[in-house]
């Protein structure tokens, strides 16, 4: 049997997904037995023209991580879609926009101002901002266009599967790879995890009915390790996040931040998380409710940490 042709690509991401891919440990040897890696910019020297030269659908599987922030990433997404039989959104950024997706709270102008003009460490007297085209004596230089809005891979091209996580747990990665190797692929569109239920189902903490009088940030309290973190006032996203990760964060006494995305059927992860959290506020007094809500400092960053571009509103309105 011919070996599988595997491509791996990164767009707007941190590189953590590449580390996570290696996290499968010695299973990588098993992967090497059955698959050849044809494109992997982080590890193998290959040029875009090499990919361009590949025939359509000649790549069996492409694991694409990172969100779509620039024209270059959009171009590569489209190209890899064309060349791949199966395109998988790998990790939270490709799936829901991820941390780069929080850039949708701003636009290009605001981001450039901050990054190239305002930060204390910036020395940019000429106030030069990135340009897509720039004339130099040697000719014209180009840079990819930086878009106003971050998009998910799924909003850019048609995707076949999702491997969620920031980064995906090794077991999740292997679950998908194993299915690929064995040719036992689930229906198109499936978010591949061990558990379709929310993280709470994975979480070993003791859960009771919920009533919250005060929300805390993680550094403000030392939670009881035996008890549900949300019950202790920590904004644990486990209730609103697809499981299968085995709840490593809550098990380390840190609240889940929602990286595996919503469970099936949830239209907007953040709005559902928000509604659930608000529902268990233990007060019927509007002033007290407001005081309790004041303890949630960054609702968008909390409820949509990995899914803002994939939410119904997708981005903030900039005046």
């Amino acid at each position: 049997m011919a070996k599988l042709k595997l491509a791996l690509y990164w767009a707007s991401s941190c590189g953590g997904c590449e580390i996570a891919q290696l996290q499968i440990g010695d299973k990588i040897l098993k992967l090497a037995e059955v698959a050849d890696i044809v494109f992997w910019p982080v590890a193998i020297d290959a040029k875009y023209k090499d990919v361009e030269a590949m025939p359509e659908k000649s790549i069996d599987v492409c694991l694409f991580n990172g969100a779509i922030r620039t024209s270059e990433q959009e171009h590569m997404a489209k190209m890899l879609r064309e060349k791949s039989k199966v395109l998988i959104a790998y990790g939270a950024c490709a799936y829901g926009g991820g941390i780069p997706g929080l850039g949708n709270m701003f636009n290009r102008e605001l981001i450039f101002e901050r990054a190239y003009l305002e930060t204390p460490s910036t020395d940019n007297k000429e106030k030069v901002l990135p340009q897509t085209k720039c004339k130099v004596p040697e000719g014209e230089l180009t840079l990819p266009e930086f878009y106003d809005t971050v998009k998910t891979l799924g909003q850019t091209v048609d995707i076949d599967y999702v491997i969620p996580g920031c980064p995906p747990e090794a077991r999740t990665t292997w679950l998908a790879l194993e299915a690929l190797i064995e040719g036992k692929l689930p229906p198109k569109g499936t978010v591949i995890t061990h558990n379709a239920k929310a993280v709470c189902d994975d979480c070993p903490k003791k859960r009771d009915v919920k009533k919250v009088k005060k929300f805390y940030r993680t550094f403000e309290i030392m939670p009881d390790p035996e008890i549900c973190l949300l019950e202790q006032g920590l904004l644990c996203a486990g209730i609103a996040t697809r499981g299968g990760c085995e709840a490593p964060c809550p098990q380390a006494n840190m609240p889940c931040t929602g990286c595996y995305g919503p469970v099936d059927g949830v239209i907007d992860q953040g709005a559902h998380f928000l509604s659930a959290v608000a529902s268990v506020i233990d007060s019927n007094d509007p002033d007290e409710i407001q005081r309790i809500i004041d303890g949630i400092y960054d609702p968008v960053g909390t409820f949509y940490r990995y899914s803002l571009p994939d939410s119904l509103l997708r981005r903030a309105k900039i005046k």
């Binding site: 379709a196 239920k197 929310a198 993280v199 709470c200 189902d201 859960r207 009771d208 009915v209 919920k210 009533k211 549900c228 949300l230 486990g238 209730i239 499981g243 469970v263 099936d264 059927g265 659930a276 529902s279 268990v280």
Partner: peptide, 21 residues
Amino acid sequence: EEKCSGCRICNLLCPYNAIDF
């Protein structure tokens, strides 16, 4: 029940105590 993770958010919200864990 195929989707319920048992998070128990809903348990106390019912004024009729219709939700059992």
